[in-house]
Amino acid sequence: MDSVSEFFAMGGYAPYIWPAYLIAAGILVALLGLSLRDLKRNENTLKTLRAERRGGAIEEAES
């Protein structure tokens, strides 16, 4: 247990070291999440648009 708290204390530099790691992790995870969200949204929109266009083309052909 002592070694665990010693590890987290980082020789007294915990208030500098852990925020550094947390900021880095937070920013990179947010970047990954936003990038994946944008990709999903754009690919879904593209799929819907293409389906609409194909549907429109069929309607035109039928009329």
Partner: peptide, 24 residues
């Protein structure tokens, strides 16, 4: 490697966005 992975994801997203613009 993280940058390259994100780059593929984001470029794919940009390509899809460009195609959407073209269709519209």
């Amino acid at each position: 490697a993280f940058y390259l992975a994100i780059l593929v994801v984001r470029t794919r997203s940009e390509i899809a966005a460009a195609k959407i613009r073209n269709i519209r």
